[in-house]
Design a protein around this nucleic acid. Structure first.
Length: 409
DNA sequence: TCTGGGGTCCTAGGACCC
DNA sequence: TCTGGGGTCCTAGGACCC
């Protein structure tokens, strides 16, 4: 946490809809909805009628009958996102992406060269508009959390700088829902207890909140309400999981159709995994029945892998535990139905780290060689890698060497 | 009008080890 | 044989975010 407000949260306004308006002049100043079945994004003109993202398409058209509905163009959005992040990196190397249209920037090291954080934020906004043609809102504050709240308040196409002496006056009158981590469930609990604003939350007792929300969430939200958020902007984060899912219609699926669907998804994600040069430790199959109740089954592999064959076979096994009931193959599927099937790979590591661990047997077991390898790993991947390496060293057994663990990326 | 697709983080119980 | 604490890993589920 810095002493001055030098963390920026930059957030593109109605990203997909803005790209459509940028590329097609006829859509400008008109209500635009991206996505037909479900609203992926809505322009501000459509939002004025109550249209929200994730809303059902039919409901959105009822609220705003004259809206123009366009199909999504994901590749175009991806290019626009890449271009915006290039602009971010022109201002500072400390960029932490949150999503394709959102990032934190720490500009504390750039002020000598580029001016005050407020000046940098203003320049960032005009540069993104000039280079990519999109409006971006920016919040500037001492903490990540407050910068994010500020950018949300600055929308559309604005910026807010929260100076340290104005934090409380800015934050406390806002509704609790602006806090990161307060969704419908938590919001209802808090309001039942008379907590409506961030100021109410800050005034509540810690023990009371922890009793209501659980120990972690209680402590976390109380800290945010007091603007205590020590998390630094981290530009080294990597994805922790990778997955794909597919919603299925009303039609009843057979066991075989479901398997085909899932194995297709597994192949697709395994290919993405290999392209990213990563391996997974845990395979999870997600399932939603006809009543939209969710279930999942997961399995941790003996060793990390990105092999399509192993991952699809594991997915297949897990699926069968979900669909096969006591009355024979697929009998449970017949009873509960299926409206969504998905797969997630988690516990991701670097593919090259596994290969490094596999070098062990060839190098023998002499202490010097092990020490050298530990040093090598420490230099490349830091303390977490050392912890894994010392485990291997302590046991000195072939059974551990044969089961390398993916080092965290 | 019954509900997309991509993620993150946390909890709680059980197995297992020291 | 019974008892206990501390720690890690795994699994299933839930809340939340864009």
């Amino acid at each position: 946490m810095t002493e001055v407000a030098s963390i920026l949260h930059a957030d593109l306004d109605s990203f997909y809809a803005s790209v459509e308006q940028r590329d097609n002049p006829r859509l400008r100043n008109r209500p635009v909805i991206v996505g037909a079945g479900v609203v992926l994004a809505a322009s501000y003109e459509a939002k004025a009628y109550g249209v929200r993202s994730a809303m059902n398409g039919g409901q959105a058209r009822m609220l705003c009958p004259h809206a123009i509905v366009v199909p999504p163009r994901m590749e175009t959005y991806s290019e626009a996102s890449k271009a915006v992040f290039e602009v971010f990196h022109d201002f500072t190397p400390l960029v932490e992406p949150l999503s394709p249209d959102e990032a934190f920037l720490d500009v504390s090291g750039a002020t000598k060269l580029l001016g005050s954080p407020a000046q940098i934020a203003a320049d960032l906004r005009s540069q993104v508009l000039a280079d990519v043609g999109l409006a971006i809102s920016v919040g500037v504050a001492r903490t990540k959390f407050l910068a994010k709240v500020a950018s949300a308040q600055a929308k559309p196409d604005g910026m807010i700088v929260v100076e340290p002496d104005r934090e409380r006056a800015f934050l406390h009158p806002l509704p609790v829902e602006v806090l990161w981590g307060v969704g419908p469930v938590t919001s209802a609990k808090l309001r039942d207890h008379g907590v409506e604003t961030v100021g109410d939350l800050a005034a509540s007792g810690g023990a009371e909140l922890q009793g209501l929300l659980g120990s972690h969430a209680g402590r976390h939200l109380r800290a945010l309400a007091h603007n205590r958020d020590p998390r630094p902007v981290d530009n080294s984060r990597r994805d922790r999981s990778m997955g794909a899912q597919r919603a299925l219609g009303q039609r009843v699926r057979t066991r075989e159709e479901l398997r085909t669907e899932l194995l297709g998804l597994a192949e697709k994600v395994a290919a993405r995994l290999r392209k990213a040069e990563r391996v997974t430790r845990t395979v999870t199959v997600r399932y939603r029945n006809a009543d939209h109740e969710r279930e999942s089954r997961s399995r941790t592999l003996v060793e990390p892998s990105a092999s399509t064959q192993l991952l699809t076979a594991t997915a297949d096994d897990l699926l069968l535990t979900l669909v096969d009931g006591p009355h024979g193959p697929g009998s449970r599927l017949g009873r509960v139905g299926c409206s969504l099937i998905g797969i997630t790979f988690s516990g991701l590591g670097r593919a090259d780290a596994v290969q490094l661990a596999l070098r062990f047997p060839e190098e023998g077991r002499s202490t010097e060689r092990l020490d050298g390898l530990v040093d090598d790993i420490r230099q490349r991947w830091g303390s977490k890698a050392v912890a894994r390496a010392s485990l291997i060293r302590r046991s000195e057994g072939i059974e551990v060497l044969g089961r390398p663990t993916a080092l965290d990326a």
